[in-house]
């Protein structure tokens, strides 16, 4: 690590012995910028998917809904019985029947605001909040079946699990994309280093003939390409963060696509992109330089 930072701190003398930049160096800058930009998006995707997966698997796993059917009198009696049972069940933090207004609000997106819900035989819904580690779902459902016919427990697992799986899948894709971007960057820098070293074979030969050690020669080339990758990736990172910031906000319509971005300290994560790129470029160029220098006496 000391060597890495020592290299970045610069050595103007060794820099001067390498001829001014050629096309390869400019292409390295462009590719690093493009990869930095894409890495920010992959990072945003992975971190958003992570947040969604956590939220759905954690927060929603603590809530369940009890649905009580029957006519008005039956619903009232069964609701009281169910609340008694829930009060006796270990692992349940709280339970309460939803008000008529709350139930109407739940149906409003599908049925509208002006439907006379009081005339419909709607089931009574009871919100159940579990403690950690929670209650025995199967045992509770079994007791409800025995004692309160028409009471159905829905712990949301049926529709929550696919969402959580999808979010985790997206997170994996984001991570794989980051790995591919890193690998592509390493391959690109290696090719650029080989091309630059090959183009400067005469320079290397002269340096060796006047007594330059391999570390001096390699340092000059490694530093140039590493700094170029760092600068390019840094510029790409800044553009990527700006692009994420400019994504349209979701407003009240919360969904995965409108949530893509970073949250809180997550906004610091893109700073790692140019650093990782520089380390990758440092290692890749160093390996390429050592291999190339072995060809010179």
């Amino acid at each position: 690590m000391r060597r890495f930072f020592g290299l970045l701190s610069g050595d103007a003398r060794s820099d001067r012995v390498v001829p001014p930049s050629g096309t390869t160096s400019h292409l390295t800058l462009f590719v690093a910028a493009a990869m930095g930009f894409l890495a920010v998006f992959a990072l945003a995707l992975a971190m958003t998917a992570d947040r969604v997966a956590d939220r759905w698997s954690d927060a929603q796993s603590q809530s369940a809904t009890l649905r009580i059917s029957g006519d008005a009198e039956q619903r009232e009696a069964r609701t009281a019985a169910v609340l008694d049972i829930l009060g006796e069940t270990p692992g349940i933090a709280s339970s309460r029947p939803l008000t008529a207004e709350e139930q109407a609000a739940l149906l409003a997106p599908w049925l509208g605001d002006d439907l006379p819900l009081g005339d419909l035989p709607l089931p009574q819904l009871i919100e159940v909040i579990a403690e950690r580690p929670g209650y025995d779902t199967d045992a509770l459902q079994q007791r409800l079946n025995d004692e309160v016919p028409g009471a159905v427990l829905d712990d949301h697992s049926g529709w929550r699990a696919p969402i959580v799986d999808a979010a985790r899948g997206l997170r994996r894709l984001g991570v794989i994309s980051l790995l591919l971007i890193t690998g592509t960057m390493a391959a690109t820098v290696t090719l650029a280093a080989r091309a630059t070293l090959a183009a400067n074979a005469q320079v290397i030969e002269v340096l060796r003939l006047v007594g330059a050690e391999d570390r001096f020669v390699a340092g000059a080339f490694v530093r140039r390409l590493t700094v170029r990758a760092l600068v390019g990736s840094g510029a790409g990172m800044v553009l990527g963060v700006l692009a994420v910031l400019l994504l349209p906000p979701g407003g009240e319509t919360q969904g995965f696509l409108t949530e893509i971005g970073f949250g809180g300290l997550g906004w610091l994560a893109p700073l790692a992109v140019p650093v990782v790129t520089a380390v990758v470029a440092f290692v890749a160029t160093g390996v390429a330089a050592r291999q190339k220098l072995a060809e010179f006496s």
């Binding site: 003398r13 012995v17 340096l207 007594g211 330059a212 050690e213 001096f216």
Partner: peptide, 8 residues
């Protein structure tokens, strides 16, 4: 001065 440069 190149030999001076490369020898530090």
């Amino acid at each position: 001065a190149l030999p001076l440069t490369v020898s530090g």
